[in-house]
Design a protein around this nucleic acid. Structure first.
Length: 654
DNA sequence: GGTCAAGGCCAA
DNA sequence: TTGGCCTTGACC
């Protein structure tokens, strides 16, 4: 695996534990983690590369597919602990590469595992309120050797991968004033002597100085620890190597902004619990892989293994309950919310109707897209839903097959929401105005990565060869995006729009329409049809599987396995609808009839996106564009994908 | 008292 | 300006 591949994946917040080949070099640098053990990848053994299906789902235990009574699931989720896990140590878990530059990680910094260098860079940028400019196209490649070349793209990548700033109530409080101030800030060019292409003088500088001076007057209590203590004297003495005028240095220094809202040096901050959970999650992932590898090895020498509750899939929780809290003083503790596993255990149809959008999606601050506003509503208020003969009772829900229950557990809505609003937040940080179409493409791109991540961890998909996986995803990505959006609207109350940090309105509905506003009516009709059918989360995840496992896709090598998976899910869904929704006539058939409508809507969206792309209006070199090209020019895409010199993003992800 | 992440220092 | 190392201090 090349460094590019590593950093590409890292930028998606994907753990290198998911990758097969190990890093070519460990990089240098010290840091607290020091010279710990080199990471030994386990992923290669986890990926089935033969036509044989070691966990062939044709061998699925019938009790797994269909309801077998309340007692049947008692062993479904055995503790992941085992003798192999005991060897795992936290130090091994954090033996990763920096998601920004690929250097060696030194620990958790500002929300995620990064290297010492990027930690320092992020800290300086925030503290000194640096505003960088990219002399290229704001798409510079950032790696260990080139990270110094473009601080703009480096900082952007820091934000993209999830490095977080604490919210500053003093700044957020006056939204309009801050937007104006940001305008001023944006006009300030970074006075960087090492990059002569950047303008040294700028007529906007007085605006910055006026703003800074005003801030000084209005917020005299702002201090910045040791760096700000000496006022002008010390700065003059150090002189920043003489690159700034006294005024600029003074203003910059005295306005050193703490990354932490409490301005506290040392100690723990509010990321602490998140780090703890992240560690636990990584440990769990490692354990899962170790168990899977062991089981795989055992199965290879021991034919006839049946994937049931004894399989690695069934023996460990598919989705951990670890959530990624977002930073806000207003955020309620994430521990107070149930994880997807808990949600999955709830009767699907017992979920209350989504509350008014402003309840959980609207921001607390008028100009903040902070995800703190998106506290996920647990279906704890089941009593709020009037019982209906068309909806499954709790008794009926107990009869849901373990397979569907596990399917539901693969859904991580909170992650979806956090990713979405984290991206919206980072992309608009310190920006007066952003291109909303470009932003939408970025969100869709991010959703696609989540899509791939979800698919490659699912039972019917992960044992297919990568070529087949790619074909299935290239065929289904857009319909799954549309379906996901329907799910988010119907089951989580996703509103039509949200207000970004910079005050712009972002059209969330357009995400589901793949950018085509005129499809809104069609989309709403679709949603209404599904609502009439009491479309629930189990229906959703089954339909999603059916969309993904399309045996009609051309060029599939292992058609039989795809078809078997498709029919298995189809049978499970049919059984589920008959069992849990006896009051809805032919619910299954009606759901199947909706699928072509989703396809039609997605096709329109794809066409639109492709046209915008061809017009040069969409971000280049994204997974989204790769998908658009793959379907339209399969031969070319296949040639490119098969080229030894080029590996597509999708290929790398899989 | 140990851990570890944030802030600070300073040589390069 | 960068990045490695040090100090600090809340949390366990």
């Amino acid at each position: 695996m090349t460094m590019d591949q590593q950093t590409g994946l890292m930028s998606l917040n994907m753990s290198p534990f998911d990758l097969s080949p190990g890093p070519e070099g460990s990089g240098s640098g010290g840091g607290p983690s020091g010279a710990s053990q080199q990471y030994v990848p386990q992923g290669a053994a986890y990926q089935c590369t033969s036509d044989q299906q070691p966990f062939g789902y044709a061998n699925l235990d019938a009790s797994y597919l269909f309801p077998t009574g309340a007692g049947s699931e008692s062993g479904a989720y055995l503790p992941a602990a085992g003798t192999v896990c005991d060897q795992t140590d936290t130090k091994d878990v954090i033996e990763e590469l920096c998601p920004v530059c690929g250097d060696k990680v030194s620990g958790y910094h500002y929300g995620l595992l990064t290297c010492e260098s990027c930690k320092g860079f992020f800290k300086r940028t925030v503290q000194n309120k640096k505003v960088y400019t990219c002399v290229a196209e704001r798409a510079c490649h950032i790696d260990k050797t080139q990270r110094k070349r473009c601080p703009f793209c480096r900082f952007q990548k820091c934000l993209d991968v999830g490095m977080k700033l604490e919210e500053r109530p003093d700044l957020v409080a006056s939204g309009a004033a801050m937007r104006r101030a940001r305008c001023s800030l944006l006009c300030v060019h970074v006075r960087n002597a090492r990059l002569p292409l950047w303008p040294r003088s700028c007529t906007c500088v007085p605006k910055w100085e006026a703003f800074a001076a005003a801030r000084l007057r209005s917020a005299p209590s702002v201090q910045g620890g040791e760096g700000s203590g000496g006022a002008g004297g010390r700065e003059e003495g150090r002189g920043e190597r003489g690159r700034f005028s006294l005024d600029q240095v003074s203003l910059t220094r005295r306005h050193k902004e703490p990354v932490r809202a409490d301005r506290m040096r040392g100690g723990r901050n509010k990321f602490g619990p998140m780090y703890k959970r992240d560690r636990a999650r990584k440990l769990q992932m490692m354990r899962q892989r170790q168990i899977a590898v062991q089981t795989l090895r055992g199965s290879l020498g021991d034919s006839g293994i049946v994937l049931g509750f004894n399989s690695p899939y069934a023996s460990v929780p598919v989705k951990q309950e670890i959530q990624i809290p977002q930073v806000s003083s207003l955020t309620s503790s994430p521990e107070s919310s149930p994880g997807p596993a808990l949600l999955a255990a709830q009767p699907q149809a017992a979920q209350p109707p989504p509350p008014p959008a402003h309840d959980k999606w609207e921001t607390h601050s008028p100009h903040s897209a902070s995800p703190d506003a998106f506290a996920f509503d647990a279906p704890a208020t089941t009593a709020a839903t009037p019982s209906s003969t068309a909806e499954p009772t709790s008794t009926e829900t107990l009869r849901v097959s373990p397979m569907i229950r596990e399917f539901v557990q693969t859904i991580d809505d909170r992650e979806w929401q956090n990713s979405l609003f984290g991206l919206l937040q980072s992309q608009t940080y310190n920006q007066c105005e952003v291109d909303l179409f470009e932003l939408m493409c970025k969100v869709l791109d991010q959703n696609l990565f989540s899509q791939v991540d979800w698919a490659r961890n699912t039972v019917f998909f992960k044992y297919l060869k990568v070529d087949d996986q790619m074909k299935l995803l290239q065929n289904s990505w857009s319909v799954m995006l549309v379906l996901d959006h329907l799910h988010q609207r119907m089951h989580n109350g996703l509103p039509d729009e949200t207000t970004l940090h910079n005050g712009q309105k972002f059209d969330l509905l357009c995400l589901g329409l793949l950018g085509v506003p005129s499809l809104a009516d069609h989309f709403n009709e679709l949603q209404n049809k599904l609502s009439d059918l009491k479309f629930d989360v189990s229906d959703y995840i089954c339909v999603k599987f059916l969309l993904l496992l399309n045996p009609e896709v051309r060029g599939i090598g292992n058609v039989k396995c795809v078809r078997d998976g498709y029919h298995t899910v189809q049978a499970a869904l049919l059984d589920y609808t008959l069992t849990c929704y006896p009051g809805i006539t032919d619910k299954f058939g009606k759901l199947v009839m909706v699928v072509p409508e989703i396809h039609a809507l997605a096709a329109r969206g794809e066409e639109y996106l492709y046209q915008r792309h061809c017009a040069g209006q969409a971000p280049m070199q994204t997974l989204l564009m790769e998908m658009l090209h793959a379907k339209r020019k399969p031969n070319v895409a296949e040639m490119v994908n098969r080229s030894s010199e080029h590996t597509s993003t999708l290929d790398r992800l899989l």
